[in-house]
Amino acid sequence: MKLNELKVGTSGVVRKIGGEGALRRRLLDMGITPNTKIMIRKVAPMGDPIELHLRSYELTIRLDDAKKIEVEELSS
């Protein structure tokens, strides 16, 4: 499933990072690499972007970009 499909409060493990160029590099640089555990912390009041928790810090990305990240949901 895609990262944007995870529900708030649930976590997933990154399988694949799509996208290209500056965006993809930025996602990788910020620590979204294969096998990273990501938790969906919340959704912004207007429905986009979303807040993630990974590698013990908080990161925000847009839904469009989250769609490019393939994750496997972790059962809590």
Binding site: G21, A22, L23, R26, L27, M30, P49, E51, Y57, E58, L59, T60, I61, R62, D65
Partner: peptide, 12 residues
């Protein structure tokens, strides 16, 4: 051209 991607840290 593409804007800098909005992938931003939310610091404590």
């Amino acid at each position: 051209g593409k804007p800098v991607p909005f992938v931003m840290e939310l610091p404590s």
